[in-house]
Amino acid sequence: MLHTINKSPFQTNALESCLRFARSGHSVLLFEDGIYAALKNTRFESLVKSSLTDVKIYVLVADLEARGMRTDNIIDGIKTAEYGDFVDLVANNKSVQAWL
């Protein structure tokens, strides 16, 4: 199952809720303002890091770069994704849940 998050964790609880419900083996894609959750040194870093043992986390590079962030600022273990990879993630998971 794929979860998508498009909100900054500083603005809404989408990240926290998603990680509370995501099960082992699920994938999470951070895009739009959701990319801020992928960065090092935020107060959500430890939450994200501990989730990486169970779920795969991806960040959409186009949204990261648009916001002046670089892939070397992201937490180790988070994978980068282009729009084509986003499409593959949707295709390779049985369902998609958007945490709006």
């Binding site: 199952m1 419900f21 099960r23 049985k94 369902s95 849940q97 945490w99």
Partner: peptide, 15 residues
């Protein structure tokens, strides 16, 4: 339990 339920779904409409 809700997680398990979500996983069973074919289509999830989010609002």
């Amino acid at each position: 339990k809700i997680s398990a339920l979500m996983e069973e779904q074919d289509v999830i409409l989010s609002f």
